[in-house]
Simulated assay, not measured.
Amino acid sequence: MAVSFTRFAKQMFVFFHVAAALLFLLACYGPYLSPERWWFLSFLGLGFAILLAVLIFFIFFWIVFAPRYMLISLLAMALGWKAITSFITLRPLPDFVAQKAPDTLRVMHWNVARFLELRRNDNNKSRVRARMLDIIKRQDADVLCFQEFYHSTDPQYYDNLNYIQQELNYPHVYFTWMEDGGKQWFGQAIFSRFPIVDTAKLVFPKPGLPETLLRADIAFGGDTVRVMTTHLQSVQFKKEDYESLEEIKSREDSMLQNSRSIFSKLKRAAVIRGEQAALVRAEMERSPHPIIITGDLNDVPNSYTYYTIGKGMQDAFLRKGFGIGRTYSGISPTLRIDYILTSKSFEVVQFQRIVRQLSDHYALVTDLKWKK
């Protein structure tokens, strides 16, 4: 039996419920609208988990007070079901089998954050790079796709390129740089144990950072697969921005003043990522081969970026993962911003996240095989 409460209170709760449902639906359909004009919808995408939680809360709330109002949440969730299934997957999660089947291609993606150590050292208490390389070695992947990869020809710094080629047995690599006298280079990299038969690079235009899209055509299983990896525009939060977020959370100082800089950076990054995503999509559509694309897209599943790049592709996490699939260890526990996407020519055999507090991103590994 429903518990009664005042008419005014009921009207207020209905109002907030309807408002939450409308914001939820805007977050669900925001990915279809370019952030150049509809940039504010990208903020709702970041809050998708909160809006979904509010709708679920109202379902249980109205069970007690007025069950018929549950329909507001149920209708909104039904209309936004596609967005929900892009955000979370609840299928049973089997153990990841370390031993590869002979006909599978194991792909590893990781934003390695320059391995956090640039200069050579013998400090056993701070050998982050060594632990990261050990994780990479133990995956025994056929293809490695790295973002924020670091390489140096200065003997005082780490030569990660040659180390991975020689010590980890990846003879084929695509990593581009220009000799500028600095002897240190950063960017994306693709390593492969299978032959690379063709390569190309797309440098995204300013005003974003000099991010790139790399592609390497790899001979595998009697056919050719186009492996692409990219790193899209980040928000570029600085130390003071993270401090502002903490002040907002604790309601210290001026919330308006702290929010202004943060929202400005979020808006700028969303617009630039939208432009970059369109360029990536155009490159994908020109491919004569099936595609595997990995990337730190710096955007959530309920975003224009993810929708543009992922349209018609398989998300390895959604196929074989479980839960929300957080890939970024900072700011929020709901940030899945790293992806492995594949053409439907592949079957996703298994998938895992490697949750280690080394880089600020978690590594992703998946096994793929050609569909018969």
Rank of each mutant, 00 (worst) to 15 (best):
276 Q>L: 01
275 E>I: 08
244 S>M: 08
231 H>L: 06
232 L>Y: 04
267 K>A: 13
254 S>H: 02
235 V>D: 07
326 R>I: 03
225 V>W: 01
255 M>N: 00
263 F>L: 14
307 Y>K: 12
328 Y>D: 00
324 I>K: 00
242 Y>E: 12
258 N>A: 15
307 Y>A: 14
263 F>H: 05
249 K>Y: 15
234 S>Q: 01
272 I>A: 07
257 Q>Y: 15
304 Y>T: 05
273 R>I: 12
297 L>V: 07
285 E>N: 13
274 G>E: 05
308 T>N: 08
235 V>M: 10
319 R>Y: 09
231 H>V: 06
271 V>D: 01
260 R>M: 11
277 A>T: 06
321 G>C: 14
279 L>N: 03
239 K>V: 04
298 N>C: 10
255 M>A: 04
330 G>C: 07
241 D>R: 00
296 D>W: 10
280 V>D: 02
315 D>P: 14
285 E>M: 13
266 L>E: 02
271 V>C: 01
259 S>T: 14
305 T>D: 00
279 L>M: 15
329 S>Y: 05
231 H>G: 07
253 D>I: 09
277 A>E: 07
278 A>L: 14
283 E>G: 06
242 Y>S: 10
276 Q>D: 03
295 G>K: 02
293 I>Q: 02
262 I>E: 03
246 E>F: 13
324 I>W: 05
248 I>P: 11
255 M>Y: 02
281 R>S: 14
283 E>D: 12
285 E>C: 13
249 K>G: 13
292 I>H: 08
253 D>R: 15
276 Q>P: 02
244 S>Y: 04
264 S>M: 03
299 D>W: 03
310 G>N: 05
297 L>Y: 11
250 S>M: 11
318 L>T: 10
316 A>V: 11
291 I>M: 04
257 Q>G: 13
260 R>F: 12
240 E>M: 06
315 D>T: 09
329 S>P: 02
280 V>N: 02
299 D>T: 08
291 I>W: 02
237 F>S: 00
263 F>D: 04
325 G>F: 12
266 L>Q: 02
265 K>I: 07
285 E>Y: 09
277 A>K: 02
257 Q>F: 15
302 N>G: 13
271 V>H: 01
237 F>Q: 00
275 E>F: 05
236 Q>M: 13
228 M>L: 07
250 S>Y: 10
240 E>F: 10
317 F>Q: 01
301 P>N: 07
332 S>H: 08
250 S>F: 11
305 T>I: 00
332 S>L: 07
264 S>P: 02
242 Y>H: 13
309 I>F: 10
229 T>R: 11
296 D>K: 09
249 K>I: 15
299 D>E: 05
